[in-house]
Nucleic acid binder design. Structure first.
Length: 276
DNA sequence: GCCCAGGTATAAA
DNA sequence: TTTATACATGGG
């Protein structure tokens, strides 16, 4: 992998196992917008445009320094997904199919609070509306930077009340967002600590927040803290597992369970007929 | 109108 | 411990 400077940003050579649509538009992040093959999005208080020519990866509106410090990590470019896919494929023949179906999925390393807050909003909700709510959340309460808005900090939201969030139209989730913001801002819930401690302990830490159950905690840990042993299971996923892997438990998916889960999720979503 | 959406809190059995 | 229902909102 090599990073070269271009007119607008950087060009990255030697990137494999990355498909931008599969990664940026698969329900793990909600701030990317596709426009004729190019994805624009905001993360870490920066707005960039990401695209590929099939050979190289391009990131516009950025610098070599930011690539090294932020985007290389955000896109998880230093993890060998080809190797991991090989391992996951060995576990079960259907996992091999699932890996082959969307081999370009990567687990983004998003900011912990953004991931947690986003998945609080995601509960009993659909992706289109989740994106709208998050957009309004950023426009109303995020810091304005140039022509875009950063994701609002926990500290900012902690000073608000649930009623103050009415412009974002997230309904009953307002009180959950505020409770999460207050507990994160005060340190009562320590997100950074959740990177290192035992998985069950980290899960319990997040579940101190009202509106955070096992599923939201798993998603926050997987997408915000890169705990790739996380295995988020929703109703759809439960059905997929029962149908596709009747004799397996979540523990049988190995150290890269979270990555395996994403392959299964994408595969089962795109092929609903496999449940019939 | 009715149903559902990458769930969770709450009450009741 | 397990099961049922409400929850806000908006698209299909």
């Amino acid at each position: 992998m090599e990073c070269l400077k271009t007119e607008n940003g950087v060009k990255i050579t030697g990137v494999s196992d990355l498909d931008l649509a599969q990664t940026l538009d698969c329900g793990q992040s909600f701030r990317w917008v596709e426009n004729s093959g190019k994805f624009s999005g905001v993360a870490f208080r920066r707005k960039v445009i990401v695209y590929s020519d099939g050979e190289n990866l391009y990131i516009d509106n950025t610098t070599e320094e930011d690539f090294e410090n932020i985007w290389k990590n955000y896109l998880d470019l230093e993890l060998d997904y080809g190797k991991i896919r090989g391992q996951i494929s060995e576990i079960h023949p259907i996992l091999k199919e699932a890996c082959a179906y969307a081999p370009g999925i990567r687990i983004l390393r998003q900011e912990p609070w953004e991931a947690l807050c986003s998945f609080i909003i995601s509960q009993n909700n659909n992706i289109k509306r989740i994106k709208g709510i998050i957009e309004r959340l950023c426009e109303n309460f995020g810091e304005k930077i140039d022509d875009f808005y950063a994701f609002p900090t926990a500290e900012t939201l902690a000073s608000l009340s649930p009623e103050d969030l009415s412009p974002i139209r997230a309904g009953f989730r307002h009180k959950y967002i505020i409770d999460g913001a207050r507990k994160v801002a005060s340190g009562e819930v320590d997100l950074e600590k959740c990177r290192n401690i035992g998985y069950d302990e980290a899960r319990a830490e997040l579940m101190k927040i009202k509106g955070v159950g096992g599923k939201v905690a798993d998603c926050a840990l997987l997408f915000g803290l890169h705990r790739i042993e996380a295995f988020p299971v929703d109703v759809w996923m439960r059905r997929a597992l029962e149908k596709l892997f009747p004799n397996m438990t979540e523990n049988d998916f190995g150290d890269y369970a979270g990555i395996a889960q994403q392959y299964i999720f994408h595969y089962s979503r795109m092929h609903p007929e496999i449940f019939i």
